[in-house]
Design a protein around this nucleic acid. Structure first.
Lengths: 190, 190
DNA sequence: CCCGAATACTCAACTTGTTGACTAGGTCAG
DNA sequence: CTGACCTAGTCAACAAGTTGAGTATTCGGG
């Protein structure tokens, strides 16, 4: 039910095709909601059936026909109702953490490699988010932006994604030093 | 497939019943993997079928009969194989963030209330994790613990949960001030 | 002595999320 | 001029996660 709300929120930025959303998600909503194209198409169909979005088929010159989706008043209402509801806290739900939990018993070297890889990925994500932030700010200071912008929600959501990934980087670095020091110690003693 | 690995990792701490796990999860694995009791029972049955865990039925005096599960060598092997695999990064996947994304358009007051509630919840979680950490450290400094402990994985995973919730608290506070200042400004101007 | 909570599950139905294969033209680099 | 990637989807099947109800006993509080 919540992919639905993420889609509604994404459509606040204007009309989009399923294909657009599949990629645009990556630049905005993906901070906190990922999905595959299939999920999007399915959900968009359902939402169209229920009148939350309107689909217009658009024929194109040298490209496949696409369907553009826009929010309907009913969709906006559903989104507002959603924002008025309570939201349950979530956990991180990350395979890497499960692997770290078992790192001492399992393949420690492989886990260390995974952490290194994750750190790099998170650093890339941080850089990406920072570019997005700069684009949103568009030369203004944060102060100015917050005073003048139409909507601050997307900025706040972006900040959460940014600090999450920064935190990931820090944690990866810390975990690596711990596991490496430990490896050295175990080598020396046993 | 990953609840499975979380269960295997949880069983590293010793035998447990489904019911135990349903609660113990909250104290260790829940940092990064939540589930309902039903999911656990179902998964445990499957794992028993596949020989990853062994179930012993234990009759009790004044309580319902329970089944205690222990890791089998095959289970340990499966867990090791899991730690050797690559793990995909995850997003936060939090309804509250979707609501914040649409906060300007939706019910802003309700979203602010949700953020306040979430902040409190996260603070409670931080306190809980800190108690757990103290119990793990058991009077030792972190340095000492890392040098002497059998397994450091659970500690590292705990640290990730802890910093995640601290980050949540900070973000909630920040978002609240932004939304409140904005509310005041909008009231004054229009 | 009764009510509610805790222990320890089971069964069934449902919604979400994932995976893989398929269609079919357009564009661009080598 | 060919092969790989991009656009813009569709269909089907499955795995994972959620929700709600039901069972049967025991313990503690008022």
């Amino acid at each position: 039910m919540s992919l639905r709300n993420a889609v509604l929120a994404a459509l606040l930025d204007g009309a989009a095709s399923g294909y657009d959303l599949a990629k645009a998600f990556d630049a905005s909503v993906a901070n906190f909601w990922t999905c595959t194209p299939q999920q999007l198409y399915r959900e968009l169909d359902r939402m169209a059936d229920e009148g939350l979005v309107e689909a217009r088929t658009v024929e194109q010159e040298r490209r496949p026909t696409k369907r553009m989706f826009t929010l309907t008043p009913a969709g906006l209402e559903a989104l507002t109702a959603f924002t008025a509801r309570q939201h349950r806290p979530t956990a991180i739900r990350d395979d890497l953490l499960v692997a770290v939990l078992a790192a001492d018993v399992g393949d420690t070297e492989a886990v260390k490699a995974s952490i290194r890889e994750r750190r790099q990925w998170a650093e890339a994500k941080v850089a990406r988010y920072e570019r997005l932030r700069d684009r949103l700010l568009d030369g203004r200071t944060e102060e100015e932006f917050l005073a003048t912008a139409d909507r601050v929600g997307p900025y706040l959501a972006l900040l959460r994604g940014l600090s999450f990934e920064r935190d990931n980087v820090r944690w990866c670095a810390r975990s690596l030093t711990v596991l490496e020091r430990r490896g050295a110690r175990l080598d020396a003693s046993g």
